[in-house]
């Protein structure tokens, strides 16, 4: 976790998928401080989106810890503008919704995931 799913009407090319996945990973890591190992990005196409949108992004992200409203707002904006630019669509045609999931409900690498902001100690312990 996080798991970002991007639904679009038309398929994005392989190159654009890679660019968008990199962009989403960069945005998530730079704004939240989470390590890139955690970030999953999945694409799907053929979907008719609400309000004439061309791309709909849902991010299932850990809640709590350092995830303030401001952090989540900046993350939403960065993903929206970045995805629009990489996919060459208008910003207003990209919707972004973030859904918080408590980290203690999730296991990766055989360990319960850390609270947002406490990743360093978790990574040290997991790699020990």
């Amino acid at each position: 976790m996080p798991l970002y799913t991007l639904a679009s009407r038309k398929p994005l090319s392989a190159a654009v998928c890679k660019e968008v996945a990199d962009l989403v990973t960069d945005a998530h890591c730079q704004i939240t401080g989470a390590p890139a190992e955690f970030v999953n990005v999945v694409f799907m196409h053929g979907h008719d989106l609400r309000d004439g949108n061309l791309i709909g992004v849902i991010g299932n992200v850990r809640s709590g810890g350092n995830r303030s409203e401001d952090v989540l707002k900046r993350l939403r904006q960065r993903v929206q503008t970045g995805v629009a630019a990489k996919a060459n669509v208008a910003v207003e045609k990209v919707s972004v919704r973030l859904i918080g999931v408590p980290s203690r409900w999730v296991m990766e690498g055989g360990e319960i995931m850390p609270e947002p902001g406490a990743e360093a100690a978790w990574l040290d312990r997991a790699k020990a």
Binding site: H47, D48, L49, R50, G56, I58, R97, V101
Partner: peptide, 13 residues
């Protein structure tokens, strides 16, 4: 989480 997927789609979608 499941509703999130439904909410991004149109009725036809």
């Amino acid at each position: 989480v499941l509703d999130g997927n439904r909410l991004r789609l149109s009725k036809a979608g």
